[in-house]
Design a protein around this nucleic acid. Structure first.
Lengths: 223, 223
DNA sequence: ATCTTCGATCAAAAGAATGTTCATGATCCT
DNA sequence: AGGATCATGAACATTCTTTTGATCGAAGAT
């Protein structure tokens, strides 16, 4: 369960981020609308939490642009004012829910769950915390990978890697992004760990090893 | 797409450089401000990534000098401190954006794209990250070219080339511009790589090969 | 406390795909 | 026709990827 939080005030953002992490959500944070939109082009999220007051383009505009791009990710809008007008305007621009600041953390959580449920029940009836692709199922909460209903043992890094790949379906990921995201690296380690782990994963995926494609000169892509 | 990276820590610089290269940027690297300024006198870049802590003159000073020379290239500042003061100071000196270290690679990429787009004043609301023309679709986040719904494999240079061509629809591009943008060449190299790659690309475009037109004496044009 | 085991990392080498150049042949334009 | 410009195939050079085996280190077992 991935959330993109677009919020410029660091204090608020940290507060939300910490809380959501504790709930088991994975939170990516962008401090302005442009950045948020860009990140959404590379990754898919389950929900976007969007502040209305942002530097640069406004939250409304971000939402509008998302919809114009046929991005249907549920959007929860945060605003300082509890004005019915704003709410209506927001919803018309494609927001799915709306929460006035300051808000109760419990209420935030509740709304997120509601949004998530609503969204996933429409599509293929359940996000049970699993990533699926053909005969591949990665169960987040159980941390188990199943290949054609056969459980495959993965190490910690392998799990993070497959999870990153599967949540970035059809997006090319550079080794650096992978290193940054899975290993937390910020400098060049002059190593080929990523390649080695991709190799191991492919072996474990058996018949589906081909799902991890090599994009020569760029990195790897799942699906 | 050319970037000038001014950063003294080699490991960090290498990491950024590789990552950006994988994303399709051509990166020039300077380890100090003076060198950076010199390089900028000879060449134009799409974006400058500027570390604040540099040996010799500081990043702020570099930025200031650039602006004093009426160089309007967008500047993305990197700094170790997440201080609002520094941010404000940086922006006042002419920086266009700011990123605290250590940063997420995703966010770096996102900001670069945002800066670049802002600069080229590209306001396409329906931009879903794909370039389309007739039966040709280039998805640059997946790095995949589709010809009449059939995926065609492209090499890194071919990808950069088709992406450049498709974003410059109906504009003639000289070999020099193509060389500069895709290969990062700035002097006259007496080579015919561009011709060779245009040829390869045409072959892969199959029925759409005619979309890449030769403009005799000038270069090539897409669409 | 030591051993054992497994995961994580590294380094080297083989293998594959890509990048570049050159030479030749085709095409265009006057 | 003839010079200039462009297209193309093939050889060669380079870079990137994969694979393998060895090493290091942490966690758990004895």
């Amino acid at each position: 369960m991935n959330i993109l939080l677009i919020e410029d005030e660091t204090r608020v953002a940290d507060f939300i981020r910490r809380g959501l992490k504790a709930e088991g959500w994975v939170v990516e944070h962008a401090t302005d609308g442009e950045t948020g939109l860009e990140i959404m082009q590379d990754r898919d999220f389950d929900i976007v939490i969007l502040d209305l007051m942002l530097p640069g383009i406004t939250g409304q505009r971000v939402c509008q642009k998302m919809r114009a791009r046929s991005n249907t990710t549920p959007v929860l809008m945060l605003t300082a004012l509890d004005s019915a007008d704003e709410r209506v305007a927001g919803l018309r621009l494609g927001a799915d829910d709306y929460l006035p600041k300051p808000f109760d953390f419990d209420e935030l959580i509740a709304r997120l769950h509601a949004l998530h449920r609503r969204n996933t029940s429409y599509a293929d009836d359940a996000d049970d915390g699993k990533l699926r692709h053909e005969g591949l199922i990665y169960d987040y909460s159980a941390m188990v990978l199943t290949v054609d209903d056969v459980v495959v043992d993965l190490s910690a890094k392998e799990r993070e890697l497959i999870s990153l790949l599967m949540t970035s379906e059809r997006k090319a990921l550079s080794r650096e992004r992978i290193l940054n995201s899975v290993w937390g690296t910020h400098e060049d380690p002059m190593t080929n760990v990523v390649d080695v782990y991709i190799g191991r994963l492919r072996k474990k995926l058996g018949p589906y090893s081909g799902l991890i494609k090599t994009v020569r000169g760029a990195g790897y892509r799942f699906g």
